[in-house]
């Protein structure tokens, strides 16, 4: 055989080999991923389908339905609870963009919102994950670095302090969405920034990108007592999460898209929180934006948060 003729054949062989090697590695990881789920009692077909589940926005209606059913089955097996997973579409799609306003003269730092959120959104109790962090701020200063996150040994409000709860600001130009390498997080048509927990690869880059410390990572399998699980869930919201993925505040997508108020607002004992439709000129939030002194946190970063703070 002459070399010139032999070369292409062997090259083809080489690519074939490389191809098979690649396929072997791919199937190996798949098998490993699927096997670990199956070992935990998952049905083989469910585990396989979950592994190959498409991005939420690429799924057809039937595929979404199947995915929702799979999540319900998994929750039943893992937590022993019958949950309902929905994928309620954006509320009044054309003319609703959610906004939030918070009256910092009224917030007294009771942290009711923090734990209402934990219960509503099926947040891990151990290790703790909180979507809302209430900062105890020094009066006379807006320096976040002088804030105290861990107040609470004495009754609040304390003299000389004011309180600034921070959660996801649902930016119009979210740095996290820009940063995510897999498009696992995006802005919904109603302005809510959501995550597809089944698509996230857990690279932490959004945590790094977020200026509001709003994105939280499941370092471990989240632990929630069975009886405390909120069974009314949304695919993009409070459905049970797994380890190794990001999660964040979704303005209680499972509630607000049905017209209800977010859990943090309902729990607030001082009425400091206002939620509504920014596009509706006759809404409370619009009244506040148009008539009150408002500010946004770190507005200079040009992320256009849809979360305003105002004072009396």
């Amino acid at each position: 055989m002459t070399d010139k003729k032999a070369a292409p054949i062997s090259r083809r062989n080489f690519f074939k080999k490389a191809g098979t090697a690649g396929a072997a590695i791919a199937s190996g990881t798949t098998a490993l991923a699927v096997a670990s789920d199956v070992l935990e009692g998952e049905a083989y077909s469910d585990a396989l389908k979950e592994y190959f589940q498409k991005h939420y926005r690429d799924m057809s209606k039937d595929e979404v339905k199947a995915a929702l059913a799979r999540i319900e089955r998994k929750a039943k097996r893992k937590h022993g609870v019958d949950i309902t997973v929905e994928n309620t579409a954006p509320y009044a799609r054309e003319d609703t963009v959610f906004g939030y306003a918070l009256n910092i003269s009224k917030c007294k730092g009771y942290r009711k919102c923090v734990y209402a959120c934990v219960e509503e959104n099926n947040l891990s109790r151990d290790p703790e994950i909180h979507y809302i962090r209430v900062l105890e701020m020094e009066k006379g200063s807006m320096d976040l670095e002088k804030s105290n996150h861990y107040f609470g040994e004495d009754p609040v409000p304390k003299a000389g302090k004011f309180y600034l709860p921070v959660q996801c600001q649902h930016c119009e130009d979210p740095p996290c969405v820009k940063a995510c390498p897999t498009q696992a997080t995006w802005s919904e048509p109603d302005g809510i920034v959501v995550i597809d927990y089944n698509w996230c690869i857990g690279c932490h880059y959004c945590v790094i990108a977020c200026p509001y410390w709003a994105r939280h990572f499941n370092w471990e399998e989240p632990v929630i007592p069975k009886e405390e699980i909120n069974t009314e869930t949304h695919y993009l919201g409070n459905r049970p999460r797994e380890r190794g993925v990001m999660e964040k505040c979704t303005f209680c997508i499972q509630r607000t898209r049905k017209g209800k108020m977010p859990a943090c607002l309902e729990a607030c004992p001082t009425g400091a929180r206002v939620f509504g439709n920014l596009l509706d000129p006759k809404s409370e939030i619009r009244y506040i934006l148009e008539n009150k002194t408002v500010f946004r946190l770190k507005e200079e970063l040009n992320t256009e948060p849809k979360f305003w703070y105002y004072t009396d």
């Binding site: 791919a26 990881t29 798949t30 490993l32 991923a33 592994y51 991005h55 690429d58 969405v177 820009k178 940063a179 995510c180 390498p181 897999t182 498009q183 696992a184 698509w199 996230c200 690869i201 857990g202 690279c203 932490h204 880059y205 990572f217 499941n218 380890r243 190794g244 993925v245 990001m246």
Partner: peptide, 27 residues
């Protein structure tokens, strides 16, 4: 090793996955 879900790496493969170009620096 720093990924939370390394087995989902196919999400960044061309054609199969969804690489967030051109905005994501990590992509």
């Amino acid at each position: 090793v720093s990924l939370g879900r390394p087995e989902r790496l196919w999400h960044i493969l061309p054609f199969l996955g969804k690489l967030n170009l051109p905005t994501s620096m990590l992509a």
